[in-house]
Structure formats: structure tokens, C-alpha cells
Design a protein around this nucleic acid. Structure first.
Lengths: 363, 363
DNA sequence: TGCACTGCAGTAATCGATTACTAAATGCTT
DNA sequence: AAGCATTTAGTAATCGATTACTGCAGTGCA
């Protein structure tokens, strides 16, 4: 512990430095200390550390040796102040986001953490709150403590405009709302719905229920258009009662399924616009004494981690969160580092069926 | 966009400031700009912002007005440099941590995010890697870019000693390995196992299987001792084949259950030292044509989010991650802010049975 | 031997906020 | 009205790293 004090003295530091063992306690060092120990000026040390020219090979080696031995790292705050670059990225959530979002974004978190880390950025997880039309942004943003922002999910216009005022590069991932002039990566949920519905139709199903949401109207518009397209292409006619759009979570999806089952005729398959709806629907189907997939096939969208653990495991259309994440990171980093300034939005194709056990050919 | 330039000129800034509307683009400001606009010195602004005395009420109001209108926030990097305090906390993971950890720690993440944010700390998520006995710590730690570290799960001695060298306050949450002189919060898994086993015994079960792990030996030692205590207190004798400790994930737990079922006599209940093992065991039981809970009762430990979605929903002993998180945060913040220096380790009691549908009284 | 030029080391200003210290201005008393 | 005390305003140093610039030593050429 006493080493901190000792290091202040040039004579002792030289001695200590020679004896320094790897497991010793490691004091904070400054560029001046390193310079003193090496017997050079701070600028020489800086030149070596930043791979610039202007020092002899001899001093370069001496400095590198000492830096390596003492494991010196420049104070990041000093550099941040000087260069006006933080190397921080904010990962922004809505504060009251449902716990379920963890299912959706756990893959995304992992890939983002890994990618940004390998590019030398720190990831700061933080949240926005809205109360009474007032957007409460976190301090990291208000004080320009980040170089970029990555936002998950639906970004309301109110949040959008407050973030925009700070002129910090930001990208929105998996947003369903219409946005302009913004970096955004989303999945093609219309395609996903189309793929899922066609999959059911190809299995011979003609009586298909639809469970979607009205709380996310733009999302539902996408999934419904995909569903409708597939159904129409095969000239299938469905009773309006089989179209349920009041799902919001597992329980409301349960009720949607109930409405479908309580209508006179029972469909042979159900399309759910999200896996979590499918889970609710499955519970309802079981409670009605029907068998999955023998009596009713069920398909979802997303492929959240839960889906492989349901009984039976859920067939679904995978939304490729990893690709979305990688695309988003690329766009954001390019914007930050000004490699490219073109504002773009990307859409990840979503036609990858994960065949599990909730679907079956109609006999 | 042109405002940035304009702000550099004192004359225009005064005009602009009057016209500034809330939705305008917001340029980065310095304390000098604010001082210029207010017609005072930077020190006066600083005094007002830090609630110190030394300015007249009149200037204080004027400054506060301008600060509020322009939404000025001091440059955090400047303050960090001066005070040598980052207000950052590192949340440290093992890089190769299994995706399953997301189930365990999603609650913890949420509570930690909320608590630290309200205390004015930023949360930086980051990871350690070990390759060939070399510990690779993230740069945020190596460059002292955090005031504290919070570590999830088992902390190997190697990681422990490398972190320790930096002398950054840190706390370990949910660690099963023995540690000394370290802030640590863990759950009492012996108590959890004891509670779970007693619950089964109280339901009339005398033939109980045990599924534990050998990959986390210290964890297993805890759960097994709790299990053993309950069994011995009721003078129950079990065949050794029912004691399986080769579980590591869902699939290995499946095999453990298979071993138990393949032994001549079939138990009426199974204790699993983690919910994820219980999920594997349940799949095995179903595959053998047995009914849960009618033929075999199953109980786990943890109460991960998955557990409420299994079929039937899993009865388990809840590990209170939220309390663990709150305790850990408290200890860490106290250490950082030197309110208290006593090194302590806390253990959260774990005797809270979550009764769901995988257990049933023996007939 | 002297002059020009190259290569290297060191000095000082900078980034923005804070604060100890100094200077100025005000109020109060006799 | 002069002198003292007290409040308020302003100056400059500081945190650590970087870099433009200055200065010095050494080499080569005439």
C-alpha cells in the first residue's frame, strides 16, 4: 500500500521499478511519473505511446519497457477532455419496459457488448422515462458523456425529438414506428408473417386464426399485411372472429385464443405475431382440452429463448437479432467516426422458419 | 445548426439566449460561455452550480436562469479529471458465460441499473476473459475508469487476484466459491435445499431423488448438505443411485433423471438444485411416460423466469436476487464513498417456496 | 574551421471545471 | 467623512495527456 507515496520520489521509484513483481498492488501512474522513471520528458512518453515519430529507437525501447513493466495506461478522462471523445456508447431502454423484453434482447445485448468492446467502446446501460409528456433523459446523454446512442424497440416521437436535440449519433434497433432521417435497423415482420402463414398453408391448413396486437399498431399493420397476403394468395376465406388483435402479453393472448375457440368453428392452426402470444395461446388451447399440434397447430414470430422450452417446443419464424445488432453497430460506428454520413435504414429479412413441434400437416 | 458558431460571440449569444426555444438544437456549452452570457466570471457560475456561498442573490438568480434556459451541464470529464472520481461502476461478467445466465441475472440487472442510476452512477457492462491462465481484464478497469466493480457469479481465485491489484472497490454477487476479505453477497443455498426437501417430505414423500452438479463443487456442497440435513432429520434412507451430481445444464440434468429412472425403484419426488436442472429432469420424466406431479413431484431452486412457463409451472425455492442486488449496491457504494470501511459478506436467507404445479401430496 | 541542416528533447498551451487566493467594492461605525 | 470590516468579483493554478513549437546537439559538406 505504501508504494503510492514512494512512487512520488524519483530515486525510490527507480529501485522499486526493478523489484516490481506482477502480483503487487498497482498504483495509479501518470505520464510524468513514467517520464521521470525513464529520465525523459512527458512528451517523449506520449510520442511513444501514440506511435508517432520523434524519439530515438533507444529511448522508445526504454519507455516501452517501463510502460509494460508498470502496466501504465493513460488517464482516459484526460484524453476525453482533450479530444472531446468519450468512447462511451449509451444503450437506451424505456424504464418501464416489461421484464419480457429481456427475452427479446438478451441475444442482442450479448452481440452488442462483444462488438463494441472489441472496437474500444464502453457500453453504458441506461434508461429513459416519460411522465406527463415530459421526457427524462439520463445524465450521460444530457452531459454529452457518450459518443453514440443505441435504442431498443419502439421509439416514440417525443423521445426521438428530445434525443435529437443533443445531436449525438444514434441508431434505433427493432423499431416498428415510422421514422425519418434516422439510423434504424428493423426486421421485416411482414415477411415473417407471410413466411409463417405460408408454412401453415403448405402444411394443408385452410382454417387459420390470427392473434396480433393493437397496442403496437404499426407492428400489427406489418404482421397483418403479411398474413393477409399469404391467405389471399391462396384464396382462403376466414371468419372475422378468427382475427384477434387484442393481444399485448401472454394473458391477453390467452383471451384472444379463447375468443377464437368460443366461436362456433375451431380452426386447425393459429398464427401468432409474437412467440409470447403463442405461449399464451398454447396455454388456452391446452386448457380447452385440445392437443398441440394434433388438434391445432401453432406458430409464432421471434424465436425468443423461451420458445425452445415450451411444451411442445414452439415452431416460429426467427428474427435475427444478431444480424440486426451487427448492422446497427456498424452504422453507428461509421456515423461516429464519420467514415460515412449517409443516413440509412436497414431491414433484416425474416424468412427463417425454426421447425419445432407445435405444427403438423393437416390430415 | 449554425448556433454553435454563433454562441462563440458574446453579442449574439445574448440575443439568441432570449429567443431560445426548447425544441432547438442544443449545442455543447462551457462554463466560460455561461459566464460570458451572464456577464460574470466562471468562478461565479461554478459557485452557484455547486451551491457554495460567495455570490449575491441577484447574480445567483441570473446565472441559474441562464443555466436552466440553456440546459447547461458541466463537462463530466473535466470534473472526473479534477476530482479523480469517475462515477462509473463496472458490471463484470465472464465472457464465456452461458446464455442461461441471462435467466438468472435479468432481475438483478434491472434492480442494479435502477439503484445505481438513482445514485448518480453510470453502469458499464463489460467482461473478463481467461485464456491459458492469463486474466484479460477490460480496459475500463485497467485504466481506472470506474469507481467500483460488481461481479456476478463464481469468482475464480485468478480473476480475484488480478482485480485486487487495482485496489478498486468491488463486490461479488451470488458467488459460491470461498472468498476472504471481500465484499460479497450470496444466497444461502443450503437453506434453500433444506427448505425444498422439507417441503417434499411434508407432502408425504419418502422416496426422493437428488439432482445436483459437480462442475460447481462448492455450490453442490451447499445444496447437498441442506438436502442431507432434511432427509436425515426424518430418518429417510435413500439408495445412492438416486443421488445424481452430474448435472451442468438442462441436457445433463436429463441424463441424471434417466439414471434415476433406470434404477429399479422409481422415486415419488425429485429435488433439483437449480431450476434449469428441473426443466431437464421434467422433460426426461415426460419422455418416460410418467406424469408430473401425479407420478413424480419435481422441485427446483432459483425461480428463474422460465419456471413460470414450464408445463406444468415449476414449484421452486426463490432466490431473492433483488435483495442480493440491493445489499451489494449498498456495500459497494459505502465502500466507494468511505461511509464505512468494514469488510463484510452478507447471506440472503432463502426459504421462500414458490408453490406452483409440479409438486403434489403423496397419496 | 565554419555554416547549414537534421534529429531529438523539452517547454508551454490546451481541453473544462473547480477553488484558494487576491482585489475591489460595499456597508457600517464613530 | 474617514477608517475598518465584510461581502462579492475575478485571477490563476490544478487535474493528466497531447502536440505545436522552441532550442540544442551533432552530422555533413564546403
Amino acid at each position: 500500500m505504501f508504494l503510492i507515496v514512494v512512487y512520488k520520489d524519483i530515486h525510490f521509484t527507480k529501485i522499486i521499478y526493478n523489484f516490481l513483481e506482477r502480483d503487487l498492488y498497482m498504483p495509479k501512474l501518470t505520464i510524468k511519473e513514467i517520464a521521470k522513471i525513464a529520465g525523459v520528458s512527458p512528451s517523449a512518453v506520449s510520442i511513444v505511446l501514440n506511435n508517432r515519430t520523434g524519439v530515438s529507437e533507444q529511448t522508445r525501447q526504454k519507455i516501452l519497457d517501463i510502460v509494460e513493466k508498470l502496466q501504465y495506461t493513460p488517464n482516459p478522462n484526460s484524453r476525453r477532455l482533450l479530444f472531446n471523445k468519450t468512447n462511451n456508447i449509451a444503450v437506451l431502454f424505456r424504464k418501464n419496459a416489461s421484464p419480457l423484453e429481456h427475452f427479446f434482447y438478451s441475444d442482442l445485448n450479448r452481440i452488442i457488448l462483444h462488438e463494441f468492446e472489441s472496437r474500444g467502446y464502453n457500453l453504458i446501460f441506461t434508461s429513459v422515462t416519460i411522465n406527463e409528456n415530459n421526457v427524462l433523459l439520463p445524465n450521460v446523454i444530457k452531459s454529452y458523456d457518450v459518443d453514440g446512442i443505441i435504442f431498443y424497440g419502439d421509439v416514440e416521437p417525443l423521445i426521438l425529438s428530445s434525443i435529437r436535440r443533443f445531436d449525438i449519433p444514434f441508431v434505433v434497433v427493432d423499431n416498428h414506428l415510422p421514422v425519418h432521417d434516422i439510423l434504424s435497423v428493423s426486421a421485416d415482420y411482414a415477411e415473417a408473417a407471410y413466411t409463417a402463414t405460408n408454412y401453415l398453408i403448405d402444411l394443408g391448413h385452410k382454417d387459420i386464426g390470427y392473434i396480433g396486437t393493437s397496442s403496437q399498431a404499426h407492428f400489427n399493420a406489418q404482421t397483418f399485411s403479411g398474413f393477409k397476403k399469404a391467405v389471399e394468395e391462396h384464396e382462403i376465406v376466414l371468419p372475422i372472429n378468427w382475427i384477434q388483435i387484442e393481444a399485448d402479453d401472454e394473458n391477453s393472448a390467452y383471451n384472444c385464443m379463447k375468443n377464437i375457440l368460443n366461436y362456433g368453428k375451431v380452426p386447425t392452426a393459429v398464427f401468432c405475431s409474437a412467440d409470447i402470444y403463442a405461449i399464451g395461446a398454447m396455454r388456452c388451447i391446452k386448457d380447452h382440452g385440445l392437443k398441440i399440434p394434433d388438434d391445432i397447430s401453432v406458430i409464432g414470430i421471434d424465436d425468443i429463448i423461451l420458445s425452445q422450452y415450451t411444451d411442445p417446443p414452439l415452431t416460429t419464424v426467427k428474427i435475427d437479432k444478431v444480424s440486426m445488432g451487427k448492422l446497427a453497430i456498424d452504422m453507428l460506428v461509421k456515423k461516429i467516426e464519420k467514415t460515412e454520413t449517409t443516413i440509412t435504414s436497414a431491414k433484416v429479412t425474416s424468412n427463417n422458419i425454426v421447425e419445432r413441434a407445435t405444427t403438423k400437416a393437416k390430415v
